[in-house]
Write a protein that binds this DNA or RNA. Structure first.
Lengths: 181, 181
DNA sequence: ACTTGACATGTCGACAATGACATATACCGT
DNA sequence: ACGGTATATGTCATTGTCGACATGTCAAGT
């Protein structure tokens, strides 16, 4: 049940519309490594949060656009959650990592071919993230871009971790093949 | 909808009971970084998979224990999923990473104190995982322990990534404080 | 003999998340 | 003027997940 907190956190930094929030929680940025959600979850949740007084509409624009901000009560709730919620247990659901683990159920040849694909994927993504980092320079920008920078820095390290792990796994599998064959 | 595949993958490597599967998907091992689920999801899903013929009961024991194995059809389904499903989009839901990102909505002092707690946590966990790795040695064991070793190797690298990222973030926040103050 | 804890499986109601469907406006290039 | 794309918000039925409740067995220590 972290979606309301995700929205609260984004709105505590910067006012945004439901559409912008949906993009932030999409496949790039926050949704990539932390928590993804579609607009069909976001809009009803925004209405619930507004009803509770944790967020409010601070501007309206074209095409029915409503820009929300976190209220003081919303900021309190967010801070309380971040400071006091225990680190574990925590919800974890990552389809890609799951598939990485399940590779050991396949024949080594199949597993190796998928591991190579995974390495190519995270390498490409890491290149992209390095470009973002170099663009922003060595400082966290305020507002929306701040999340982008923080997510990029984390994503880069997470991608490198997957790269290293996949290389290790390929080495293990090849060694096993040599030993068995 | 990856839970059935998670169960299928575990059962493709080694026969297990619902109880053992629940433990594997719990807060240690696979559930830690990939996909967690409680027994209330596992048992009904096992019945569904058995009905579809993807798994079967291969042994029964004390206390109503039923040990399942993946059938040939189940292995086919698993292989098909692992080989053909696109890498993205994928479900990602990680409460801890979400909270890491949202720290930028707090005052720097608060954020730094939480980052230090996170570092302490992942360091302790990494120590634990190194002990597991050293116990198994430098090779993937067959069966149940194989998953443990693979998960440990990945978890170690993921924890190191979080450690590095959190250290970087603390540095950024302290620099910002010096600049602002 | 008794008690505690791990083993072992299940149901059910409440809540969360997704995909399909729906609608409408604004902008940009041709 | 027209068409395509991005912006912008919504409902609803289906499916997935979780916490609470329920039940009973087996092993080990006292």
């Amino acid at each position: 049940m972290s979606l309301p907190h995700a929205l609260l956190g984004l709105l505590a930094v910067e006012a945004r519309s439901g559409y912008a929030l949906t993009k932030a929680l999409g496949d790039e940025g926050i949704g990539r490594h932390a928590w993804n959600a579609g607009h069909t979850s976001v809009y009803p949740e925004l209405n619930r949060l507004a009803e509770k007084g944790l967020i409010e509409v601070t501007a309206e624009g074209a095409r029915g656009k409503r820009t929300y901000s976190a209220t003081a009560a919303g900021r309190d709730e967010l801070r309380n959650w971040l400071m006091n919620a225990p680190i574990r247990p925590a919800v974890v659901r990552n389809e890609i990592v799951l598939r990485m683990f399940l590779l050991s159920a396949l024949e080594p040849d199949d597993a190796i071919s998928i591991l190579r694909r995974i390495i190519a994927h995270v390498d490409a993504e890491a290149d992209e993230l390095r470009r973002i980092r170099d663009f922003y320079g060595d400082e966290i920008p305020k507002g929306e871009a701040g999340f982008g920078q923080i997510a990029a820095e984390y994503g880069l390290r997470a991608d490198e971790a997957v790269h290293d792990w996949a290389s290790w796994a390929i080495g293990q599998l090849e060694r096993q093949q040599r030993a068995d064959g």
